[in-house]
Design a protein around this nucleic acid. Sequence first.
DNA 1: TATTGTTATACTCTATAACTATA
DNA 2: TATAGTTATAGAGTATAACAATA
Lengths: 157, 157
Amino acid sequence: MTVTPQECAGEVLETIPLIMRTIRARMRAAPPLNLSVPQFRTLMFLRRHEGASLSDAAEHLGLSLPSTSKLVDGLVAHDVLMRQPHPGDRRRVTLTLTAGGRSTLRTVQEAAQAHLAKLLTALPADRREVVVEAMGALREVFAPDRAQAAERVGGRT
Amino acid sequence: MTVTPQECAGEVLETIPLIMRTIRARMRAAPPLNLSVPQFRTLMFLRRHEGASLSDAAEHLGLSLPSTSKLVDGLVAHDVLMRQPHPGDRRRVTLTLTAGGRSTLRTVQEAAQAHLAKLLTALPADRREVVVEAMGALREVFAPDRAQAAERVGGRT
DNA sequence: TATTGTTATACTCTATAACTATA
DNA sequence: TATAGTTATAGAGTATAACAATA
């Protein structure tokens, strides 16, 4: 069976928003902080890129600078993120997770991942493998710079 | 290689928002109407379910009734959707695409799908097949009622 | 009383345009 | 002049709570 790009695109268009809905709902429901998906992604990025600038974050997130700035406003207001002056270039800001932010992120990530994992137990292992392979392929297509395997919390030990 | 649910969940959590970002951006950029993803999904649903009620749409979309009502407000304002009284139960509304809405939806869907398809040509056919299989598996998990193959526009002929 | 939908209110997400401060 | 970021403005998405109309 040969799958055309059009067919593949149709499946993606049908399926991704559906999954997104579940991810969003779970993220918002996860204590201790009701993070939105963009907020979560911002924290994930900053955990991997300590002290990144606003522009760095905007580029990674695929958002405009004003949107990113506002996103950061919210995170700072919730005390999970710090905006600090950049030593050496006073136009820049340096973004860093607070200790609480680090802990919140860990908790929320584990909760969201655990919830998805629970749903995914409905699939046999070989179909989960297909899903993992597909996710890799899609990251190559949609974000060639981030095509490596995702971070694994609670994965094989 | 055995893939644990946790690993699989991590990959999904990393990848889906990324793809979603691209889908959203393309949808908003597609003439003749800058549809949001929820607006697009609403129209897709109503094309398949002529004359559905607001509650039907809300359930399919996974949204609250007030959110759905507001979503419909916007679509009606753009003349792509009609709200009509339900004959026989005056509490209900009957949602129907306008002729323009039908045409707009077709155009936007084809444009979005074509854009994704173009990106997906970067994958060899066997990896696209893996993606299609994975989408099917994920729909089974996240929307058991909609696990059939997606509608295909421009697929194999 | 239960169901269907809308209004009120309050956040977040997102963009473009205009602006400030620094290099 | 170019770069980094913020503020102003605007529209969409989303929820809960309160309400209105109909069954």
